[in-house]
């Protein structure tokens, strides 16, 4: 089943005199249960593409349909709400609220969604155990390693039961051991829970794990391979 449908997407940044065509005519679709990497050199437009798909940035032209909803036509308020309910995010950094513990960071999303306390508790514990942090639930981010923080971010992204998770270079700040560990967890969640992951990366080791690899250069897709 198709969950994302991108048609003729363009993004042009106009700053001062220069204008950058960061996404240049992208047509793409994603199926439920994918485990897909978007690769490409620095400045090729990966972040821009993911931001538009996630509704964090506006396209200059084209459309993005998530589960039948044209998100580029939603009002700012509805879009925020839509993101909260349908899309999980993992960023390269600044993923967590530093004043909240790991558990509270995960719970917070469910709180925003209006879930009751018992449900929140149960799901948070389950998710943090799933990412291997059952023992560290009450630590604040500053007391967790970079890899552990990213795993909390994955748990947080899943808390709202999203249709898919977008991860922009989730491993860029991690050492190779943590990178592998995070990817293993994502892969496991993908296989066992059928969670859709779309992530961008520079890292070849990460690319190997993906089942579909989309290569982008100068805002254009130059290859799209399914293993």
């Amino acid at each position: 089943m198709k969950i994302i449908q991108i048609k003729n997407l363009h993004k042009i940044y106009n700053s001062d005199s220069v204008s950058v065509h960061a996404v240049n005519g992208v047509d793409l679709s994603f199926e439920e249960g994918e485990f897909t990497a978007i690769v490409g050199p620095s400045g090729s437009g990966k972040t821009t593409l993911l931001n538009i798909v996630g509704g964090l940035d506006e396209a200059t032209e084209g459309s993005v349909e998530v589960d039948g909803v044209k998100i580029n036509e939603l009002s700012a308020r509805k879009l925020t709400d839509f993101r909260m309910k349908n899309i999980g995010f993992v960023f390269q950094a600044y993923n967590l609220v530093p004043v909240l513990t790991a558990k509270e960071n995960v719970e917070f999303i469910m709180h925003l969604q209006g879930a009751n306390k018992n449900d929140r508790e149960a799901r948070t514990t389950e998710l943090l155990k799933a990412v291997g942090l059952g023992e560290m639930m009450n630590r604040r981010p500053s007391k967790l390693s970079g890899g552990q923080q990213q795993r909390v971010a994955v748990a947080r992204a899943l808390a709202s039961k999203p249709k898919f998770v977008l991860a922009d270079e989730p491993t860029a700040n991690l050492d190779s051991h943590s990178t592998e560990n995070l990817l293993d967890i994502m892969e496991l969640l993908n296989k066992e829970e059928n969670i859709t992951f779309i992530f961008s990366t520079h890292d070849q080791r990460v690319v190997h794990k993906a089942r579909r690899v989309i290569t982008i250069e100068d805002g254009k897709i130059i290859s799209d391979e399914v293993k």
């Binding site: 700012a76 308020r77 709400d81 960023f91 600044y94």
Partner: peptide, 16 residues
């Protein structure tokens, strides 16, 4: 600013 951007991204609306 980064943290507030992140909170907005994950679903905290302007009112909140």
């Amino acid at each position: 600013t980064k943290e507030i951007g992140m909170l907005m991204a994950v679903g905290m609306n302007k009112r909140r």
